Computed example of a mutant assay.
Amino acid sequence: MTTQTPPAANLSRAPGIEANPFGDSALMLGIADDDPEVRRAGARRLRDILLEVRPYGVLNLVAGAESLLVEFDCLAVSHGQLAQTIRLAVAGLGLEATGPVPGAKDFVIPMVVSEEFAPDLPGVAEELGLSQEATLEALASSVLTINLLAAAMAPMMAGVRFPGQVSRCAEPRTDVAAGSVMVAGTSAIIQPFPGPTGWKVIGRTPLTVCDIREDPATSYRPGDRVRFTVIPESQWAELEGQFLRPAPAADQQPAPQQEGGTHGSEA
């Protein structure tokens, strides 16, 4: 059965929220703002609100970097009704984040930087107008938030404190090693398994970030926080293949602060 899709202009929207029909049984939500960081934070907050409120008829939420797809039962609720429910929920709870995601974990991820493991680091540094050392310091001083799990459960993270945007590769690589730490824009991602990518590779972690022998296969989820730390290549063998786990309690952060950076090492 197909329900009539109301025009987008007729969908009620809270200030700053875009709610557009996506087929017969889904809404695409986003934040109307020029700042990509605001859009990303807003999308995360929308997901948290809908998980808390659980509007009638909603079947599934699919998070994007700057959007949220809400799948619903079109026999139970219409686009307009759901948009209105979401508007009321946001009006009551607010789009402003009230603190870290409940249960959010902190991760400190070691990475090795070498000519083999960081082939794009010189180009990224040049593009940003920084030295390679300053580029790595900008990454290490950032507290990144996992926005979503991309293909193959890759953690896509926002919040790298680069002074500008990093472009993608002009020609994507066809085979990038597992554990590769990659950047584009002011976001970062880790390659869980070998595969193609258009992101720029600036390091590699010896840890295994996704292991189907583990339950669950990843220890992270959207909302978790990540810091990177550069380690010498001599430590690679000691850490290689270890499953990524949250940082010890002493390294857990009470909130996603962006105050300074540290080159620590994972316990």
Rank of each mutant, 00 (worst) to 15 (best):
M1G: 13
M1N: 12
A8V: 13
L11E: 03
L11N: 08
S12R: 13
R13G: 03
R13E: 14
P15E: 07
G16W: 09
G16A: 03
E18H: 05
A26R: 00
L27S: 01
M28I: 14
M28V: 13
L29S: 04
G30K: 10
D34P: 13
D35M: 01
D35G: 10
V38N: 02
I49C: 06
L51G: 11
G57V: 08
V58R: 07
L59M: 14
N60C: 13
A65D: 15
L68K: 09
E71K: 09
C74A: 12
A76I: 02
V77R: 14
S78K: 10
H79A: 06
H79K: 06
T85S: 15
R87L: 11
R87E: 10
A89F: 02
V90G: 01
V90E: 03
A91T: 11
L93Q: 01
L93P: 03
G94I: 12
T98G: 06
T98K: 11
T98I: 14
P100N: 05
V101T: 11
P102W: 03
P102D: 05
G103C: 12
A104I: 00
F107G: 04
F107M: 04
I109S: 04
P110A: 15
V112R: 03
V113L: 03
E116Y: 11
E116D: 12
E116I: 12
L121Y: 09
P122F: 08
G123I: 10
L128Y: 07
E133F: 12
A134L: 07
T135N: 05
L136Y: 03
L139D: 09
S141K: 06
S142L: 05
T145Q: 11
A150I: 11
M153D: 15
M153T: 13
M156L: 15
M157V: 10
A158P: 06
G159H: 00
V160T: 00
F162T: 01
F162A: 00
P163A: 02
E171N: 07
T174K: 10
T174Q: 08
D175I: 12
A177F: 02
A184V: 07
G185L: 02
I189T: 04
I190G: 07
I190S: 05
P196Q: 06
G198C: 03
R204L: 07
L207Q: 01
T208E: 03
S219F: 11
D224Y: 06
R225M: 02
R227P: 04
T229N: 14
S234T: 15
S234E: 15
Q235E: 15
W236G: 03
E240P: 10
L244W: 00
A250C: 00
E259C: 00
E259Q: 12
T262E: 15
H263F: 12
E266I: 13
